[in-house]
Write a protein that binds this DNA or RNA. Structure first.
Length: 286
DNA sequence: CGGGACTCCTGAGGGC
DNA sequence: TGCCCTCAGGAGTCCC
């Protein structure tokens, strides 16, 4: 699921469902993830109450009523869902009506009448228990750049980060120490709307285009969050709902199709760079 | 050090 | 049906 909008939607769902709830048990179903789940550390969360849930870049941080914090990254296929733990039905459609362990489930956190399950097909995500005082200095969070939806993400900031860079603007925008939270889809879409070729070097981006990048990134991310994120291959958020921003894709996964700019007769191209796809209009992105 | 390529893992889908 | 290949929303690591 996971670029900034999808992680934000996941975080909002978690806030709605588990904030102020007390952990009644923790079960490790399959510890194998990017970093194996530490059973001893996680089971210590039993009895703790969730006080705060925040998102930083593509990470989710769950703060408990002591010094414990869960640091979560969804990788490529990580997702949460809920399941009821007694016979009664919930009056929402958020919950699976079963107690069955599904394939690729890794962790189950029970909150009295329902449980939160972490499921991750490709195991690129992780869940770590860390201490509150180590949040800022954690290897994962300490090197992150600006939140693109914050006021700090502005012309001067982005200009300073790409000024002398020989990397492509596509790679620079994907770099989490420059913009924290963008991924392949939203970078491809951003560059399309800015009419910038993805392989244009950072130092060649003119001021006008840097301003444009700032405003387009903010706009796309806001719209994607409003749309509930993007849903690809039937992934869905933890409340079982699908995002709809994929309907707005202008270049991503549109190889061979016509450019959607009325004045442009170009076709969308796909090229591969270090194993990842770049989609762009070969005519209007220069 | 900067920058690019490779790697972890599983499943879906296309071609033959 | 099945085999083989490619591809997938991320990011840490390795190498030049």
């Amino acid at each position: 699921m996971p670029e900034l909008p999808e992680v934000e939607i996941t975080k909002r769902s978690l806030s709605k469902q588990i904030l102020r709830k007390k952990v009644s048990s923790v079960t490790i179903i399959n510890p194998e993830l990017r970093y194996n789940i530490n059973k001893e550390k996680l089971t210590l969360l039993k009895g703790k109450i969730i006080k705060k849930i925040i998102r930083r870049s593509k990470y989710i941080l769950i703060f408990f009523n002591d010094t414990n914090v869960l640091l979560i990254h969804l990788g490529m296929t990580g997702r949460f869902y809920y399941t009821k733990t007694n016979g009664r039905k919930f009056n929402t459609s958020f919950y699976n009506n079963t107690n069955i362990i599904n394939k690729h489930d890794h962790l189950k956190i029970k909150f009295g009448k329902f449980s939160l399950i972490y499921n991750d097909v490709r195991k690129f995500g992780f869940i770590k228990r860390i201490q509150k005082k180590n949040v800022v200095t954690s290897n994962h969070l300490s090197r992150l750049g600006c939140e693109p939806l914050s006021n700090k993400f502005c012309f001067n900031y982005l200009k300073s980060k790409i000024l002398n860079k020989k990397s492509s603007i596509k790679n620079l925008l994907m770099n989490q120490s420059i913009v924290a939270g963008l991924g392949n889809i939203y970078v491809n879409e951003t560059l399309y709307f800015c009419k910038i070729h993805p392989e244009k070097k950072g130092y060649k981006i003119v001021d006008k285009d840097i301003r444009k990048l700032i405003s387009v990134i903010k706009k796309i991310l806001k719209n994607a969050i409003i749309a509930g994120g993007s849903t690809i291959k039937n992934y869905h958020n933890s409340e079982g709902k699908k995002g709809s921003y994929q309907k707005n894709f202008h270049v991503y996964d549109r190889e061979g199709k016509k450019c959607l700019r009325i004045s442009c007769k170009g076709k969308i191209r796909r090229i591969k760079r270090s194993g990842r796809s770049i989609f762009y209009c070969s005519k209007c992105q220069t």
